[in-house]
Design a protein around this nucleic acid. Structure first.
Lengths: 192, 192, 192, 192
DNA sequence: AGCTAATCGAGACGGTACGTCGCGTCTTGAC
DNA sequence: GTCAAGACGCGACGTACCGTCTCGATTAGCT
């Protein structure tokens, strides 16, 4: 047990919640330490005691929110598994969670350290889950091959999310699942 | 003919160049109207006379740099054409141009109007060129199918550039070109 | 003429006035750049553009106020002149002006640079006037002798103002004027 | 007998010493409860348990140092006694003791209650000693006359210490002793 | 040549937020 | 009950950019 008065954990939650609320209600630019402090009644100094700057609070707040990721179902069919996972991912990203992911990336593109942390704390999970789905059926892929297939599956999804040239609908993710499955099968053939 | 003292066009170039320099030398956060003004000796008012805000300057400054896109060679083979195009794209994005693309997206994610403009003035060109490559071989695709294939090709590239910060090497783009070609062929079969 | 938009002089006056008002109404501790800014509608940055910190604003504000010093009457009699001057000084210091002088000294005792500036911009004037009164009658004093007599006259006044918080009444200043006069006369005798 | 763990008296001394050290080494502004706590390893709460606020600690810390006052020698001659006493006072105030006296006054000017306490616990002693010297030779002065003479003697000294930051040398204090003696003699004459 | 009008540099200005500091209070577990 | 540790609300500090504004000084085309 650490000495001294313990931190009030409710504060952390309140701050993160306030940050999320500010984002969804007044847009990304409305998130400020000042506003979070005023909104929650938490002293600014207390916020800075827990997060060394604004970015860190935002990261923490959104990672919690964004970590709600679909479980990887196991239907026995790779394409079916991929289709389900990508559909769920799309559904999630079409909701508020997409907004927060975009916001996080807005920060990430301005600060590579932040992006690195974002990847390690958050994005990696989505990748891992996808990789596991693939690995269930294809056990002999090299790491490079796995990475390629994951990029092939997630790349177009993020591309649409960030650049927003087209909607993330079922037709899109299903087609994507189909192509990734075929690509995996082909790689398997080449390897053996 | 407008009356009064004409604008000094050298200023526009100087400002854009300064913005670029600030980005590459001190990182994205260093780009500020204040800094551009001070760096170039141009008055802030002059900058605001030409660009209505910081984002607009950044768009203008980087779009030139970011617009440099590979020509679409025509070898007769779709996979070969894609391979060439994606390799050249990767080469470009591995240079400074990747940095500026990231900067533009950083702004785009904070302002959807800006993103729209960015898409229409800049990103669309890369897509069009890719679409044309595909269209040369596959003339009967619906727009949705074309869009899907372009997303399948560019998605993973952007994903690595923006999100994963992973290397865009030949192995990657070649594999990508291969899968896109395969996907196109399959779509053709299904359609007919 | 300096280039650029000229400063709005009304701002300086408003800020100084607000500082004085805050002092007299809510006490010395109430003077803050924050409060002055809010009170006057002047942006904090504007205040800091004119005064490099809180102390400087306070000094400037009070020097204006405190410079209202009694003129040195010339009755032909040294004691009479001294009596008049010290009475007027006492009257002034018994008013608001005494409060501001105490406030300035509170700062001065915490920062010797500030005290130096305070002496040079403000306190010196009181001394000069007294020295002139003495010099009219005694033209052959050394600088050291003059300094001594001025200290002899002003020391007890400041002592009561700052330390003793004792009344500065006519009985006191008259007695003081009398002793300073006798001291001057004696010094004259010794010198010749 | 109080119950529970007894206070560690070494702490009080350590805190006072730290305050003094901060003053002399880094200037008045460096004295903060925060710094004293960190410097000594004493918890802030412990400090506040012993002194109700910063001022009180400062008073307690410096009053010991500031209390060192010259004894009042009795040579039989008033002027000689005054000369000795003022010389010794000057010597003391030229040392560290002058710095601490300035620090105490800096606090006193911001809080009249504090000033009152400072006078009663500390400054009064110097006055009393001087008054006693005078009283030995002049037994019939009213309290007002005594007060005047003490102010006449100490005023210029404090004035130089606090306001003028001018040297307290023998020439100065001797001249002062001489004038105070003369003033006393004259008052005696007038009274009788 | 003189007039008109937009340009330019410089920099003041109101705002909003930043991240830091010190105050005095409170809350732990250990002694 | 005291102690070290440190969380906490509060209020101010001085700084950084934002985008707007107001100056005097250029610098053209139009009369």
């Amino acid at each position: 047990m650490s000495i001294g008065r313990p931190r009030n954990n409710a504060h952390s939650d309140a701050a993160k919640e306030a940050a999320l609320q500010l984002l969804t209600e007044h847009g990304y630019a409305a998130i400020s330490m000042e506003a979070v402090a005023q909104h929650t009644g938490i002293a600014k100094q207390t916020l800075y005691r827990r997060w060394k700057n604004k970015r860190d609070l935002i990261l923490d707040a959104f990672v919690d929110d964004a970590n709600r990721m679909p479980p990887a179902a196991d239907t026995g069919s790779l394409e079916e598994d991929l289709r389900l996972y990508l559909r769920q991912t799309a559904t999630l990203l079409n909701s508020n969670c997409g907004v927060t992911n975009r916001a996080l990336m807005a920060e990430g593109l301005q600060d590579s350290d932040f992006l690195k942390e974002l990847r390690e704390r958050h994005l990696i999970k989505r990748r891992t889950r996808l990789r596991d789905i693939i690995r269930r059926k294809h056990t002999h892929f090299t790491e490079e091959q796995e990475t390629f297939l994951v990029d092939l599956a997630l790349g177009p999804v993020w591309y649409r999310l960030l650049v927003q040239n087209a909607p993330l609908n079922d037709a899109f993710t299903d087609a994507l699942a189909h192509q990734v499955t075929r690509a995996a099968r082909e790689l398997e053939t080449q390897t053996s």
